[in-house]
Design a protein around this nucleic acid. Structure first.
Lengths: 153, 153
DNA sequence: GTACTTGCAAAGATTTTGCTTCCAA
DNA sequence: TTGGAAGCAAAATCTTTGCAAGTAC
């Protein structure tokens, strides 16, 4: 997933424009999140950050994620709790999409659909609910595994 | 939410038919989940159960919830993590629905839509993904709060 | 009777808090 | 310079595990 420099800096620029103080630590974390090619949990993020800056504290990771969540700039996912109860994070720079988690092999696919957009519009209209974040996660068997899935498993 | 006797026992009968051993504790927990009129976390469930059976251990609650999850008989929800990181549970006896969590007042509304059903069908067809559970959670401002919501809040 | 379940205590995993020092604006 | 952020240690929260004793089938 090659990305241009400007895309990699999208989150950072967004934060600056919102008047968020950019520290060395935040710059690093935000860059890692932005350029990650898969969903990361807090500890994975911490480990990658420590490779660059060994003094960066785990607490800073949690606080930065909390700050980004508050600004609606990352999504927090469970991915069906396939491994433990931790959360996974991804930058909200793309359109909303659905995560499909295979409960057999653990593969995660993403899915976008105009139907999803329509569904959001319907909620906003019918319930007069102003959506800030939506999350759809599905668990089941992916195409590669479904042949093997036995009923009742 | 009045329910007939047979509905309240739906989960229990389902478990028996699957050959799950029905202990006193499981019967009680399953009955509470089944007849709950709101989403409960593990501790709330434990507290209600203890009112009936003070010896029932918290660990049994977790183990029973795990067993029900494995059988796909409860859904595990985050409800946007409004209070801490705990999970909420509900019986999967109704049709899939969307949870709308107001980030201002904490109210939770539910929403059903044929669009949701169509979306699921689309996923199964286009990705050849066999869905076992789907979860949609939205966070934002409910109709009662949106007038008060300030931009950037 | 036997395999599965419970309770208890303890550990594990993840996340948050208090407080002092540091640094970005 | 000064209010917000980081680091450190410790606590809090939620969940899981090991094992002996109990119980459903």
């Amino acid at each position: 997933m090659a990305q241009s420099h400007s895309v990699r800096r999208a989150l950072e620029r967004e934060l600056i424009s919102r008047g968020v103080r950019m520290t060395r630590q935040r710059r690093l974390l935000v860059q890692i999140i932005q350029s990650a090619d898969r969903h990361m949990d807090a500890i994975m993020l911490w480990e990658r950050a420590r490779a660059e800056d060994p003094t960066l504290n785990k607490v800073t990771v949690y606080r930065t994620l909390g700050m980004l969540k508050k600004h609606g700039l990352v999504d927090e996912l469970d991915l069906m709790h396939l491994e433990g109860e931790k959360h996974y994070y991804e930058a909200r720079t793309m359109r909303d999409h659905i995560h499909l988690t295979c409960v057999n092999c653990g593969r995660i696919q993403e899915f976008e659909s105009p139907l999803f957009e329509r569904l959001k519009g319907q909620i906003e209209r019918k319930k007069r609910f102003q959506i800030r974040v939506v999350r759809i996660e599905a668990g089941g068997y992916c195409d590669r595994c479904r042949a093997l899935a036995k009923p009742g498993n």
